[in-house]
Amino acid sequence: MTQLPKSTDKKLGLVIDLDTCVGCHACVISCKGWNTENYGAPLSDQNAYGADPSGTFLNRVHSYEVQPDQGTAQLIHFPKSCLHCEDAPCVTVCPTGASYKRVEDGIVLVNESDCIGCSLCAWACPYGARELDAKEGVMKKCTLCVDRIYNENLPVEDREPACVRTCPAGARHFGDLGDPDSEVSQLVADRGGFDLMPEQGTKPVNKYLPPRPKDVMPEYDVLAPFLEPVATTGTGFAHWLDKTLSALPGGSK
């Protein structure tokens, strides 16, 4: 059904930390791997070893350079996948009902056997989270690893999305964003998590944590303390010698 549920019991989603992400693309690869080997049509590649390779991915990592008014530019790696929006425009435009949002956990899915590959849902998504698979002709998108998170055949620690499980930097967090006491909700509250393109009115469930402000290092010379004169006034032989040498032409004052 392409009517959106009024509310969902849970709001499962991801919190992505732009401060910690190192841009290694491990999440891209684990996502492609899991979603090719498991549920649904495999994510195909075209001309993978040729001059112009191209393929279907459900998670892509961009890198942006941000230049503040003052100081040096910052490089920020930016993973992006479906944000499982509350007001998902991709769902309502679907003519077949293949696209839907689950009432129980808010995950947005595509029923591939109903999809006619009209692309309209990809047109309606502002985030580029849907890709039509060139080989299968059906729409592919992040499933939040729905076949992992409830999968009792997997060890408990593996029951989270493949990208979250694989991220070596701990930059990806998975949980219920509808529960204000959940770890992910706390993280969003503490770190000022934000929505992408809030003006599009999609109400994304996934949140992004902003990069922390960079430390400002004072100008600091490690050798300076050793070169400072130890004392400027003094008595005795050393003081006399210092004064005499300084008085010579070229001596330091």
Binding site: H62, E65, V66, Q67, P68, D69, F78, P198, P210
Partner: peptide, 15 residues
């Protein structure tokens, strides 16, 4: 607004 990084400075697609 797409990246939410505008508060830091001017955003440019790097890679």
């Amino acid at each position: 607004s797409a990246t939410g990084l505008g508060h830091i400075g001017k955003v440019r697609a790097f890679e």
